[in-house]
Write a protein that binds this DNA or RNA. Sequence first.
DNA 1: TGATAAAATTTACGCGGGTAAAAATTTTAT
DNA 2: ATAAAATTTTTACCCGCGTAAATTTTATCA
Lengths: 343, 343
Amino acid sequence: MAHSEIRNMEEFAAISGISRPTVSKYFHDPSSVRKSTRMRIEAALEKYDYRPNIYAMNQNRKLTKNIGIVVPYLADPFFGEIVRMIEGRCIEAGFTPSLFSAHGDQAHENAILDSLRSMKPAGVLLAPLGRQSDKSAIETFCKHVPTVLFDSNIDGMGEAFVGSDNHSFVSQTVEYLSRTGEAPCFFEMRTPANPNANKRRIAYLSMMERLGLEPHVVKVDGTGWGFEEIGRRGGLKLLSEKSLPTNTVLCSNDRLAIGLLAACYESGVRVGRGADCALRVASHDDHPFSRFTCPSLTTAAHDYSAVSDNAVETLFRLIESGGRLESRTESLFPARLIMRDSA
Amino acid sequence: MAHSEIRNMEEFAAISGISRPTVSKYFHDPSSVRKSTRMRIEAALEKYDYRPNIYAMNQNRKLTKNIGIVVPYLADPFFGEIVRMIEGRCIEAGFTPSLFSAHGDQAHENAILDSLRSMKPAGVLLAPLGRQSDKSAIETFCKHVPTVLFDSNIDGMGEAFVGSDNHSFVSQTVEYLSRTGEAPCFFEMRTPANPNANKRRIAYLSMMERLGLEPHVVKVDGTGWGFEEIGRRGGLKLLSEKSLPTNTVLCSNDRLAIGLLAACYESGVRVGRGADCALRVASHDDHPFSRFTCPSLTTAAHDYSAVSDNAVETLFRLIESGGRLESRTESLFPARLIMRDSA
DNA sequence: TGATAAAATTTACGCGGGTAAAAATTTTAT
DNA sequence: ATAAAATTTTTACCCGCGTAAATTTTATCA
């Protein structure tokens, strides 16, 4: 245990009585050596805590065992949750995940892509900033590194996209809301950071049209990634002006809804589907906090694990096929309506 | 731009008309070479997008330019926020941060420490799981890698600890609450994951004693990192049993408070300091979401940036002094009371 | 202008391990 | 038991860069 005098693979091989090339083979794939030798190596491994120098290992390999995971904003627990699942899958498969957050900043995202390139990862799972992303930087990056986009799609970039089906989200919430009460207006940021927001608005409009209902899109001002505050300020303004077109509000995403609910509470507007309630609020994402809002938030939930699993599996397929896929696929997973108290 | 035929530093040096050792020096510190040569290198750098192989670079360096950042639970936006600040400081100082989350799991934390060791980082900023941590694993790790603990202290481990002064948090909230109304009971988990929780309870007890008030500690059941749900369940139970000893509740942390507020709302208990309110709730941390609860949460705020700055600076000092500090210091930063609507 | 300091170049070796080729060994099949 | 197949060992060279020492070039300044 404490004999950590082993400095390199040469010494370790000598001590375990195996040749260095065979030991090297073992570390790349333990099942590639005969069982008897494997056991001798593992016995030595228990006595001396040697581990190969990862830098020396990766130096020559054109393809490392690293996988890069990039998310736009880690202070959003939604991404925390996704990251947890993705990391788990990568580790199971014998890869080493490296996690990065752009923290909502384009320059930071570019810097991440830059340092990621020099890591020569086997592949990258990238949830881009979206509208704020430097498209050309991402395009260049994807040319050099096998990349699967997730959560937020950018047309044509990466070898595949895995995310949620925005139409499924919106159609379920709109259908539910309009069936059980007044049809909803759509509450969103004027300049949304994320392309999903646009898809959701479009889905809202088409869904309302199909149902023969008049659509109302309410846009609130604000930029950046502080969605809750943007939702809150927008909500306060709308409520004080009494300019909401309907008594039912469908928010583009849960974080806006959290802000809106705060505004309602502050303004003394009771939210829910009870007779004593003035407003219904629903939303999309099933953000980890949406069950703790007051009232708890009716929302359409991502299939977190399906998206994570599929993204990782797609990346593995991509890696196995040498970094290129026959065609760019887009996998979209449907939502599940979560009925809580807010609508 | 597109001449990426450069395979190594040798070739790049040839093309830029500079010798390889000088180019090598440049990459380690651009200001260490004469301005004229620096400009020649940078000119070549623009034409040919060469970047040194980081693995080859780090192979010989006993000390890399990497800094490990480990947090216990990344789905908690509190850590997302801290990480953002810490990463920024590291990058400014020319280091490359690597981010890891234990996702609330001991085995995962150990695995992170393990792979971190083989990365030979210049230093590590570690926010341990706390009670769930494998102490001996952390101790061994700290012996091999210059480590500064933050957020959650473990006695004697790491070369320094940087965090918040729990006594400052609790004394301010207790003082405020008892001055403006009924003295608070203390609401916490029966088996808290984090050592700060114990310190806060002790601070509560001593503060109440000093004020000559009778303390009440209310413990709720539940394990793991889903604090909100634990707070909510505990709250529902206490409210239905009407067994809260006071009309003022001081939660150990904001995430529990978020759950408690949800329970109050569900139970129809109005929270706040108005005449129509049955309960006051306050807490500690100034969690990013605490301003969006209903009502917004009165809390004691971490000095996020002071903690981050100090942790990073301490680590830099540690690195500069070769991995050992004269004595283990503990830097604690006071809280700032944030008065909102819940108490 | 010459002396001195500062910086760059040459030369050469090392790091820790990947990996190919040929020889030797072990295992498996016949 | 023997041939064929599968592993392992030997040997040897490579990767891309760090870095030390000695030498040459360039800059600085009296």
